[in-house]
């Protein structure tokens, strides 16, 4: 149990990878707020990436990222030390995205474009030559459930169990979604 700030005498810099997330959470709870700043520094980019891929809107992704970290900070006491902070913060961010998508009724099929670029112009012709941009566009064209699972696969590696925890789905469903997402991506990119 964390009892005092004095329990965490070491500086909690983000540049020190040996300082693990559990330590930073405990330090934050002990009153060393800058430790949470280090967690923000570590996961801001990944959380924003997940939100952007899920929302497909930079402004909303920014709001969801901020909301996720805010909620995490407020409920840091509920974080279980044996869990992974990345899984926890991704889960909070994903649910923040779902809330927004649900509120705006954007889970409907109409919002899912059939193609990566519904209105290709001269600029997009140039972008097509860029493999990363093409892949990103193909991911954005996936249905929401596949888009999120492939994004988490990218962020968390092949840790299916962690992906299942974030999405609150059975592992089998995650594997199925991932397989179908890859199939769709492969088809989209082969047709490039």
């Amino acid at each position: 149990m964390v009892s005092a700030v004095a329990d965490f005498p070491e500086p909690v810099s983000a540049t020190r990878p040996e300082v693990d997330d559990a330590y930073l959470v405990a330090a934050t709870l002990a009153g060393r707020a800058e430790a949470f700043g280090t967690l923000v520094e570590r996961y801001e980019r990944a959380v924003y990436h997940l939100c952007l891929r899920t929302m497909r809107d930079a402004e909303e992704a920014r709001d969801c990222t901020q909301e996720a970290f805010f909620k995490a900070f407020r409920s840091l006491r509920t974080f279980k030390p044996d869990a992974k902070f990345s899984t926890w913060i991704f889960s909070i961010a994903y649910h923040a995205c779902c809330d927004r998508l649900g509120r705006r009724k954007r889970f409907s099929r109409e919002e899912l474009p059939d193609r990566a670029d519904p209105a290709p112009g001269p600029e997009s012709e140039v972008e097509r030559k860029d493999a990363a941009r093409a892949l990103r566009a193909a991911i954005d064209a996936l249905p929401e459930k596949y888009r999120t699972v492939i994004t988490l696969y990218h962020l968390q590696g092949k840790q299916y169990e962690e992906i299942a925890r974030v999405l609150d789905l059975p592992m089998g469903t995650v594997k199925t979604h991932l397989f179908r997402a890859k199939e769709q991506l492969r088809k989209a990119l082969v047709n490039e």
Partner: peptide, 13 residues
């Protein structure tokens, strides 16, 4: 994010 969390006061404590 930091303004809303770390610098917003000791809400977590």
């Amino acid at each position: 994010i930091l303004r809303a969390t770390v610098f917003a006061g000791p809400a977590v404590a």
